[in-house]
Every structure is written in C-alpha cells, then in structure tokens.
C-alpha cells in the first residue's frame, strides 16, 4: 500500500513537472499582461510537435532538437503577441482572453494541418523501466529525464529571476504592473521576455508530456485546466507558487486514482481550483493588495 502510494506520488511528480512548467508561463502572462491565456496549452502542443519535427523527422540529436523547439515556440509566442495581443492591450482584458481562445484554435488547426491528425510518438519501442523494491516501484528512463531536466530548467529560471535585472523587473511587473510602469520599468520589454520564458517553458512541458505519453493535437488543451488550477493555487503572478501548485496538482491527481475513477482526474484539479478561488483567491503565496 505504501509503495503503491509512493509510486503514484512519483508519477504525480512527473505529471506535476509538466503542469508546473506550463503554469509558470500562465501565471506570468496573467500577472504581467493581465489576462488568462487560453492558448497556452496549444503553445505546449506546438512545442512538442516542433521537437517531433527536429528530432523524429529531421533526425537531429535530442540535445539539439530540445532547445531548438523551445526557441521556435518562444518566437511564435512573440509573433502572436506583436501581431495580436499588443494591439489589444488597451482593451478590456476579457477581449484578450477571447482572442487567446481564437489563437488556441488557430494553433491547433495549424498543427493538424502540418503534422496530420494522427497520434505520434518521438521514438517507437518499449522502454524497460528501472525497478526498485522487487519491481513494485517503477520509473521509466524517460520519466527520469523529465524530472532531471525539469530541475535544471527550474534552477535556470530561478537564477534568471533572482539575479538578472530583467528577471527582477519581470517579477516586479507581475506583482504590480502599474507600480512597475511608474517606476520606469520598460514593460514592453518585460512582456517580450515573459513570452520568451512562458513560450519556452510551455514547449518543454509539451515535449515532456509527449515523451511520457504521446503526441496529439489536443494534448495541451486538455492540460489547460490543471495548469490554470496550479497557477491559481500558487497565486497569479508568482512563478514559484506556480511550481509548487503544479507539483501539488500533479500529485493530488495521481494519488486520487486510488479513490476515484482515473478518468475523472481532471475533476480533482477543478475541485482544488474552485475551492481555492472561493476560500483564498490570492493563492497559497499571494497576498492581498493593501
């Protein structure tokens, strides 16, 4: 029983890594640009398929395909921002939300057109999992890669946010956009950097999800709910909160399968989110504005 729970916790951390990487971007864009980005899931999907293009189709080595996919996704996010969101910035945030909903569709359609409607995998063949405790605890090599790379990415993110001037300005803007502007922070530049971060981490999340399961055009969209849940749980605009929120949602979802039908996992994320919104809408780490 204990090992069973432990196994689920490990799976939860793998899923949680994916959710957390997605939630960082959602939380930052929500905090800095002021709208809930409904296209973030599809940005993840795009990243996953870019890696598919570079790695599986063009046969580049994975260490090269991975950063290329991150870069491509970040660029695409910036293009959408400059082409569409920037022109809508003066409008009500709800208009931006609706527009992001449209971009989600455009992205998904493009992915289907370019890569076809069928499921894909990065590499076929079955991986032998590592076994512990006489096989009652298992971990696939891919999952180990996911966990390790997530840690590397988060350390890099941490250094960027804590040490660089742009990183600090980004946290400041996410915390209080108006104060940031009147302090003289160049918010347009911060926004570009936010998309670089959000886009590339979304791509990483998508790639990991594709690695752990398989690629299909709706993969990111269907993860949007737990991602929003994680971002809200951690407090909008708090990247560290998003990480913790993502890991919590991931673990809770997996462990919940002990008690409920696995099909209803997303309902758990939803319940956690609604409870949070009702009882402490600022999130675990957010503070009330004075």
């Amino acid at each position: 029983m204990l090992l069973e729970v432990l196994q689920l916790v490990i799976y939860g951390l793998v899923l949680g890594s994916v959710i957390a990487l997605g939630a960082i971007g959602v939380s930052l864009t929500f905090g800095i640009l002021g709208f809930a980005n409904f296209s973030h899931g599809d940005l993840m999907t795009f990243g996953a398929y870019c890696a598919f293009l570079f790695y599986s189709q063009l046969a580049l080595p994975f260490w090269l395909a991975f950063p290329l996919a991150l870069l491509a996704t970040a660029l695409l996010a910036i293009v959408f921002d400059q082409l569409i969101y920037r022109r809508l910035r003066s409008k009500d945030s709800v208009i931006l939300l609706i527009s992001s909903f449209g971009i989600a569709l455009i992205l998904r359609a493009l992915i289907q057109i370019i890569w076809g409607p069928d499921n894909q995998v990065y590499a076929s063949g079955i991986q032998m999992p590592y076994r512990f405790f006489d096989g009652s605890l298992r971990l696939k090599p891919d999952q180990l890669i996911i966990l390790a790379t997530t840690i590397v990415l988060m350390v890099a993110l941490h250094l960027f946010l804590q040490k660089s001037k742009t990183g600090k300005a980004m946290r400041a803007t996410a915390d209080n956009p108006e104060l940031a502007r009147l302090t003289g922070i160049n918010t347009e530049q911060v926004i570009i950097w936010t998309w670089v971060l959000g886009g590339s981490l979304a791509a990483a999340a998508g790639i990991f999800l594709g690695l752990d399961t398989r690629l299909h055009s709706g993969m990111g969209w269907f993860l949007l709910l737990p991602i929003f849940a994680a971002a809200i749980l951690g407090g909008i605009g708090h990247p560290y909160g998003a990480i913790v929120g993502g890991l919590i949602i991931g673990v809770v979802q997996e462990v919940s399968t002990l008690f409920i039908e696995p099909n209803y996992k997303p309902a758990i994320a939803f319940s956690v989110m609604v409870a949070m919104l009702i009882f402490k809408p600022t999130g675990l780490f957010g503070q009330k504005k004075t």
């Binding site: 809930a36 709910l225 929003f228 809200i232 919104l277 809408p281």
Partner: peptide, 11 residues
C-alpha cells in the same frame, strides 16, 4: 472575477 469564471466554466 470574470477571467476566473471563464476558467471555471471550462472546468
């Protein structure tokens, strides 16, 4: 808030 509501409705 409206945007949270939107997220809740997709849920």
């Amino acid at each position: 808030r409206t945007d949270y509501l939107a997220i809740a409705t997709i849920g």
